[in-house]
């Protein structure tokens, strides 16, 4: 499986050297604004006037655009076709195809949904392209997220490639024993069973020993842990984070106020 197993691209940039929590806060604030602020063109503005320039500042602009197209194009194509054709309650017909009619309400709805999802995915992409997952996790652990949580996430990132290799080995072995893994549905389902069993089993037999190994390294000792890598942070960034959080909260408040007042 040639899928690259992390989005992170190690480069030197202003965005890379930001504290991970700052980037995480930025992502969440932009998503909240995109979803809760009225304004049909707000999300797409955020994407092209905030996220895209930031990605170029972070020297990952090309990858940023490529990855978002790869991740979102199929979804958006599907979304536009289905929504413009089937949007319930569409009245203003733009044009008709066979028995279907494309309504402007449907197109607007698809546009709104798509641009919001675009902001959601792109905000995270900016974070992920410029932040090593373990830096994010150790920064969160330092701020009080339980160590076991960051342990789980970082070790999963290491186990997945190993397990992919293991799965490939099992599949090769199956093929060399003449098991048909292509063709019709029944064949494909049948090829799955002898894969799942061995894969799960071989991965879980080692669990006991690995638990002993991390106990032997005092993982469960009830003292406050320290961290080898110190992740840079600054008071200016802290202020920026508080500012972003405040904007997000105000946005939600504004939205609640809007919907309450429209109901009266």
């Amino acid at each position: 499986m040639p899928e690259r197993m992390s989005f992170f691209i190690p480069r030197e940039s202003r965005i890379h050297s930001l504290n991970p929590l700052t980037k995480l806060t930025l992502a969440f604030s932009l998503i909240i604004i995109a979803f809760f602020c009225p304004g049909l063109f707000l999300p797409i503005t955020i994407n092209f006037l905030v996220l895209v320039p930031l990605s170029f500042l972070g020297k990952v602009g090309k990858e940023f655009i490529q990855t978002s197209i790869r991740l979102l194009l199929p979804l958006f194509a599907f979304l536009f076709v289905m929504q413009s054709l089937f949007y319930p309650g569409g009245k203003t017909e733009l044009f008709g195809i066979w028995i279907f009619s494309v309504t402007s309400e449907g197109v607007v709805f698809a546009f709104r949904t798509a641009t919001r999802i675009l902001v959601m995915v792109s905000s995270f992409l900016l974070l992920l392209l410029t932040t090593h997952p373990s830096a994010l996790m150790s920064d969160l652990a330092r701020r009080g997220v339980p160590a076991s949580l960051s342990f789980i996430i970082t070790s999963t990132l290491q186990i997945i490639p190993q397990m992919q290799a293991k799965a490939a080995t099992i599949q090769d072995a199956q093929r060399s024993r003449g098991l048909d893994t292509g063709g019709n549905l029944i064949n494909r389902i049948r090829s799955l069973l002898p894969l799942v069993g061995p894969l799960v089993f071989s991965s879980l037999v080692d669990v006991e020993e690995r638990a002993i190994a991390i106990e032997a390294r005092a993982f469960t000792l009830p003292v406050e842990k320290t961290s080898l890598v110190e992740i840079p942070d600054s008071p200016a960034e802290a202020i920026l984070r508080w500012f972003l959080a405040a904007v997000a909260i105000i946005t939600i408040g504004y939205r609640i106020w809007l919907s309450l007042s429209s109901r009266i």
Binding site: E3, F151, S155, I160, M163, S203, I214
Partner: peptide
């Protein structure tokens, strides 16, 4: 601790089998 080391393996199972399927 057993659960703690089992969860990453389980997540990897989800991801890898999900991709194959």
């Amino acid at each position: 601790t057993m659960t703690l080391v089992m969860i990453p393996v389980a997540i990897a199972i989800n991801v890898v089998i999900g991709q194959i399927v």
